[in-house]
């Protein structure tokens, strides 16, 4: 290549590519096995009473060991949501689609998952949703056991019932 045909370098590619072997630990193992083997959502109670889902080994607030496992409902309330209109590399979903923070009944912190079964522009805060599970023989050790959350048909939740979770 002739040098005068080339301008100065202003941009470089710096890909990151890291391969790990991760251990889920006892708490995430409980959660993942619940999804695949029991079609249930397990969280864990912290000493201050909050139920974390997915469960953690230690309370993120105080560092104390968590207490007993707690099954939470697969119904919940959308607190906040995001309408995605822009495709990103590696994402197989076709925009527009909706991702939401969902407070499952019995949980104290939201779980993030996709909302479907409605037009994207109908997503709203307070909407009541339920899990749409994969068929029993297609359940896996991941949140992909739930295809998405969809409207449950229940009336929208009062703002006061989830305002603490925003």
């Amino acid at each position: 290549m002739s040098e005068d045909a080339q301008g100065p370098i202003t941009m470089i590619r710096t890909p990151v590519d890291l391969e790990y072997n991760i251990s889920a630990g006892p708490d995430l193992t409980l959660f993942l096995r619940g999804l695949k083997e029991e079609k249930k959502l397990y969280g864990r109670r912290s000493p201050n009473g909050d139920v974390y889902i997915p469960p953690r080994g230690a309370c993120p607030v105080t560092g104390q060991p968590m207490l007993e496992e707690v099954e939470v409902s697969d119904h919940g309330t959308v607190t906040t949501f995001c309408l995605i209109n822009i495709p990103i590399e590696g994402q197989e979903l076709k925009p527009p689609y909706v991702f939401a923070a969902i407070i499952l009944d019995g949980a104290s912190l939201p779980l993030f998952h996709m909302i479907a079964g409605i037009a994207a522009d109908e997503a709203r805060m307070g909407m009541r949703v339920k899990a749409n599970w994969k068929p029993d023989d297609e359940l896996v050790l991941s949140l992909e056991s739930i295809n998405y959350f969809e409207p449950s048909g229940e009336p929208d939740a009062d703002y006061d019932s989830y305002k603490e979770h925003l």
């Binding site: 202003t10 470089i12 590519d17 890291l18 391969e19 251990s23 630990g25 050790l141």
Partner: peptide, 23 residues
């Protein structure tokens, strides 16, 4: 939970970003 749940799950995990940056 069943007895098998005592076994801790592990899995391969690949983190990959195709960054470009200005110099």
């Amino acid at each position: 939970m069943s007895e098998s749940s005592a076994e801790i799950l592990t899995a391969p995990y690949r983190l990959k970003y195709s960054y470009k940056r200005t110099t």
